[in-house]
Amino acid sequence: MTAPMISFEFFPPKTAEGLAKLRETRKQLALLNPKFFSVTFGAGGSTRDRTLETVLEIQSEGHEAAPHISGVSSSGEEIQGLLETYRNKGINRLVVLRGDLPSGEVSAGDFHYANELVSFIRQTTGDWFHIEVAAYPEFHPEARSPSADLMHFKNKIDAGANTAITQYFYNPDAYFRFMDQCQSAGINVPIVPGVMPIYNITQLARFSDVCGADIPRWLRLRLQDYGDDLASLRAFGLDVVTELCQKLLAGGAPGLHFYTLNQAGIISTIASHLNLQGD
């Protein structure tokens, strides 16, 4: 039986303390032998230098690193320069996103959709990069309709994406139904579910409101009921997310991509419960 692919997402730290914490987090999660570590890219490329620095440090530790790259607020010339930098450094996996405009900006740059950026990368670098793109089992928050959202996803795959990572969710049926719809639409690339551990309800609700991920009513109310008892909330959340991962893997998901928030503890515990180790 093929081991599931495990990967982890980080954000580039802003402070020396954050950098030290991320290094310790990587050290713990590296014990799970992940396929890669990805590093986010701030709105409009606001963390571009720190993303590059973090990616290169991960690579220097002997791990595969996958920088996020977004087209919003970027010109083709800027993206080409960034691709050349990554290629010269031996980075050959990218997480390609449309991206979000920084607050107050209205210009989208040369790339309005992620598929345009995928096409540009293929046209300028051929098959050098393994391209990951985003998928939305519960639909992108700006989608006009479920069918339109599926076609946007297909456009990214047809443009040359190799694999996809989903937005997080807590209803496994959303993922399995999405997979059925992809198969019917002729989309056959591996689609890895994204997993968000539960740290606190305020943070989770804020993230979910922004990205369109649904927190089922039963889950939201149970989490709210714990109030300030974070230990009990996290123990409950650990059970919920572990069971979600079990169902996803049992149902045929090719792996799991964890949104770490630069923390290792809960994820290490989930992995231990699942007896997980990447390839």
Rank of each mutant, 00 (worst) to 15 (best):
L82K: 01
I215T: 02
A20E: 15
L233N: 02
T15W: 09
A185Y: 09
A143W: 12
D209Y: 04
P12A: 06
V72A: 06
A134H: 01
P141Q: 03
L117N: 01
P216T: 07
T242G: 10
Q203W: 00
I79M: 08
L204R: 07
I201D: 05
F129Y: 09
R48A: 15
D110M: 01
A161V: 03
F153E: 03
I58F: 01
M151H: 09
M179S: 03
K27E: 15
Y175F: 14
R122A: 07
I198C: 06
G255A: 03
M5N: 12
S73Q: 12
A65V: 03
K89I: 00
G104L: 13
A174C: 13
V95R: 02
Y168F: 15
L117P: 10
T166K: 13
L150V: 01
L19T: 15
S107R: 07
V210A: 09
Y168H: 10
R177E: 11
F178L: 06
A164F: 10
T40I: 09
D127E: 14
Q277S: 15
T47C: 03
E78K: 14
L276R: 04
P172C: 01
G45A: 04
F176Q: 11
P146N: 13
H130P: 06
A264H: 15
P216V: 12
D110I: 09
S60K: 14
V133C: 05
A250W: 03
N262V: 13
E243T: 10
T54S: 15
E78N: 12
I58W: 00
E105Q: 08
H68M: 14
Y199E: 01
F139V: 04
Q181H: 10
V39K: 14
L94V: 06
L97M: 12
Q203M: 14
A43F: 06
D225P: 00
G90Y: 02
N92L: 01
Q167I: 13
S145H: 11
A205L: 08
T260A: 04
A205F: 00
Q203I: 02
S147Y: 07
R234F: 06
S268R: 13
R177I: 15
H273D: 05
L230R: 11
Y170G: 06
A235M: 01
G109E: 00
A174T: 13
L274W: 09
L204P: 12
R98F: 03
V96M: 03
E138Q: 11
K247A: 12
K35C: 06
A3I: 02
T202Q: 10
D100W: 02
E116N: 01
A135D: 07
M196I: 02
A3N: 11
A250C: 00
A30H: 13
N92M: 01
Y136F: 15
H257K: 06
V39I: 11
Y226W: 08
D110S: 15
V39W: 10
G104K: 14
F178H: 11
Q203V: 02
H273R: 15
G90M: 12
P34H: 04
L94P: 08
L276S: 05
H152R: 11
S145V: 02
I91T: 06
D228M: 08
G186E: 02
H130E: 15
F41R: 00
Y226A: 09
L101Q: 05
E57W: 12
E116S: 09
I215W: 03
V96F: 06
G212V: 04
E9P: 13
T202H: 14
I91H: 12
